[in-house]
């Protein structure tokens, strides 16, 4: 078992629901401080976006963050360099698109992430059939390859995804790209389908925009991923104190 899954299972064993905020790497000069503020406010792990020019699975907020970060010259290497300043002891998970790690070299990318204490990676444009080479690279470097399960995923495929995912299973609450949010979503059903065959930690993401949505999702899963709602605050100029306040709001809702 990879260290990410061990760490997340350890948190779950204490009865605590996992809160995983998403930050776009390199979005501001002080993005590392934003991550630290989120951890102080109760984040259990942090997802870090490595920007891509064509983020197909992301809605307008994360897209803008991708492009803005790229204008600052952000790269996988620059994010790893920045992370050497991070003073926080929570698991880190990279989120990027396949072309970024493909271009870097799969084994080299996995090694670089692990060396930077990033022990998980989410590559949303890599479905089960195409993920083999990346999983092999991750296996050489203690990086957990996190797979997504969608509301449209048929049962036998959910079983395969649940068996192959590492670290946790990313349960997509909606048939949508990141940031869109209306209604309750299918998170509960997706998590239940994962649980039929696997006890891997299952986190609900995509469209978790409010503390109340996070609370409801956490009640039927092992925790939640909060992306666009947080990135929007930073795009609007919010700093560490705004990040801290937002994460505290999600934390207290989930814990209540």
């Amino acid at each position: 078992m990879k260290s990410l899954e061990r760490d997340l299972r350890a948190v779950r064993a204490t009865g605590r629901k996992l809160l995983v905020p998403y930050f776009m790497g390199g979005l501001t000069n002080d993005w590392i401080e934003h991550v630290e503020a989120a951890v102080l406010a109760g984040a259990d792990a942090v997802e870090i976006g490595i920007p891509f020019s064509d983020p197909m699975m992301d809605g307008p907020v994360i897209q803008e963050a991708d492009l803005r970060s790229l204008t600052f010259g952000t790269t996988l290497d620059s994010i790893c360099d920045d992370l050497s300043r991070l003073d926080a002891a929570v698991p880190l998970i990279a989120m990027t698109y396949y072309n970024i790690v493909l271009h870097y070299g799969l084994e080299r990318a996995a090694g670089k992430l692990a060396d930077s204490d990033i022990h998980g990676a989410i590559i949303p444009d890599l479905p089960l059939e195409e993920t083999g080479p990346w999983i092999a690279a991750c296996d050489g470097a203690d990086v957990a390859s996190v797979l997504l399960v969608a509301p449209s995923t048929p049962p036998e495929r959910v079983d395969q995804l649940a068996a192959r995912t590492q670290g946790f299973a990313y349960a997509s609450a909606r048939m949508a790209v990141t940031g869109q949010s209306a209604g309750g979503g299918d998170g509960e059903r997706v998590v239940a389908s994962i649980r039929r065959t696997s006890d891997v930690p299952a986190l609900i993401g995509i469209g978790i925009a409010t503390p109340n949505q996070a609370k409801e999702a956490a009640e039927v899963s092992d925790g939640v991923i909060v992306g666009s709602a947080l990135v929007q605050v930073i795009l609007d100029g919010g700093g560490s104190s705004e990040v801290e306040a937002l994460i505290m709001g999600f934390r207290s809702a989930i814990d209540s």
């Binding site: 797979l147 969608a150 449209s152």
Partner: peptide, 20 residues
């Protein structure tokens, strides 16, 4: 069967689109 023409092609889409 994987949609490849030699080493090119394939199906690099999110899980949500695989059934479609």
């Amino acid at each position: 069967e994987r949609g490849r023409f030699g080493e090119f092609g394939g199906r690099f889409v999110p899980e949500a689109l695989i059934p479609a």
